[in-house]
Structure formats: structure tokens, C-alpha cells
Computed example of a mutant assay.
Amino acid sequence: MKTSAPSSSIEDYVKVIYSFTEWQDKPITSSQLAQRLGVANSSVSEMVRKLKDQGLVDHKPYSAITLTGPGLRLALAMVRRHRLIETYLVQQLNYSWDEVHDEAELLEHAVSDTFIERVAAQLGDPRRDPHGDPIPTASGEVLMPAAHLLSGLDEGHTGRITRISDDNPELLRYLAAERIDLDAEVEVVGRRPFGGALVVRIGGVGNSREFDLADEITSALWVHSEQTHQGCLLVGS
């Protein structure tokens, strides 16, 4: 008997659960899951029970939701699809980085595994998407860069922007207009008095500019320091 493929709703749920914990350690709660998916709490409760019955998540009442091994494998496969499609749209079809998320959400459920692997080959098997998020390999391996939120860095810290959150398209458009992009050199100059903006210098020698960045921006930028290790490997097995 042939096992039916998971529904697009199941694929979306496990992908969001994984993405929530990818850059921080706290597991997602039902209310946070509902907020991210834009659905009612009751809908989340029903779907989480279904995911648990299928062995994709672990969950107890009033506790956080975590992926099981099979759930993680499915999530990584969906994340790979989404991020490869985003990369293809930017590199081959000239989409801007603030346009690709919604397009990828639609396309990731419609294309075949063969299509995805041909996209990966066409792009040269990229390791990250246009926002700096790592692209899992076909076998479920993820190379996470050793990076920290810009908002938490001390004065004098230097590094390069290695990831930019794609949660807010307007923020992405602002960063693009200011030419703040992946791999840009960053130095934390200090903070304005009385809880003011973070002052940072962006750009290399002879080409740097100072910015006063609000918390909403500094909480969307991850910085990799040259003194830290390249990253760690997570295997979805």
C-alpha cells in the first residue's frame, strides 16, 4: 500500500516549527505557531494533535511543540525547497529579496523533487538563500554559521552580516536602499544615550558609512565574527 504524501498544511506546520527554533533555542508554543501561521488557536490545537498522531511532533498539553526525527526530516526537506526556490527567483528571474518569500510559499508545494534537485544543480548547490539562511542538503544536513544578533553585540565588535531576517518586507526594502547586504563588514561604534539607536559602521576601509539603527533593525541582522568557527553541522536523521 502506497503511503500518501503529507498535505501542504502539514508541510507548512513542520517548516514553521523548525524555522522558529533555527536561530534560537526556545521551542515554539501553540500560540506562537498560531500567530506565525495566521490561524486560530483552536486550528493549531487540532493540527498539532494530528501531527502527534502521525509521529511528526512531541507535545503535551500547555507545553511547547518539538519535532520528532521524522518531523525534522520533513521540515528540512520543505526548508530546502523553499530556500532553493527563493534563490532561483533572485538569481535567475531577477526578483528582489523582499518579493520571494510569498512566491516560494506557493511554489514549494507544487513542484516535484526532480524539479528541486535540478534547480539546485542549476544554481551550483548553494549553501544559503538570499537572506543568508542555510539551505539544507538533499540528505538533510545544515551548516549553521556561528553568528550573533547585532542587537546583542558590544561596542568595538566587528564582523560581517551573515543573515538578515525576511519577516518584514519593508525592512528588507530599506536595507536594500541603504545598500546594507549580506557579507557587509560591520563595526559596533556604540549606542546613543538613554536607550537610543545602535550606532554601527558598515563597509570596508575607505567605503564605510555610519548608521543609527533602531532595535527593529538590529534584531533582524546576524553578524559572523572572523574570530569564531565557521559553523556547526546539524543532521536531520
Results as ranks from 00 to 15, higher is better:
Lys2Tyr: 04
Asp58Gly: 10
Gly195Ser: 09
Glu108Met: 15
Gln35His: 11
Glu210Asn: 10
Leu33Ile: 06
Tyr174Lys: 13
Leu84His: 02
Glu187Gln: 14
Asp183Gln: 14
Arg128Asn: 02
Arg36Gln: 14
Asp167Trp: 08
Val189Trp: 06
Glu86Leu: 05
Gly231Met: 10
Val90Gln: 00
Arg81Lys: 13
Leu67Tyr: 03
Arg73Met: 09
Leu93Tyr: 14
Ser219Met: 13
Lys26Trp: 07
Glu108Trp: 02
Leu150Arg: 02
Ala5Glu: 12
Leu175Gln: 03
Val119Pro: 00
Val188Cys: 09
Val223Phe: 09
Glu103Asn: 01
Ala177Leu: 07
Arg128Pro: 00
Ala197Asn: 11
His109Trp: 01
Leu143Thr: 05
Val90Arg: 00
Ser237His: 10
Thr158Val: 12
Asp113Ile: 10
Asp212Val: 04
Pro70Thr: 13
Ser225His: 13
Arg201Ile: 01
Gly132Cys: 15
Lys60Met: 07
Ile135Trp: 13
Gly55Leu: 06
Ile28Glu: 00
Ile28Gln: 01
Gly140Cys: 11
Leu172Arg: 08
Arg49Trp: 02
Ala147Asp: 12
Arg179Tyr: 02
Asp133Ser: 15
Ile17His: 02
Phe20Trp: 10
Val188Gly: 05
Asp53Met: 11
Ile202Gly: 01
Thr66Asp: 10
Val57Arg: 01
Phe211Ser: 01
Ser19Gln: 12
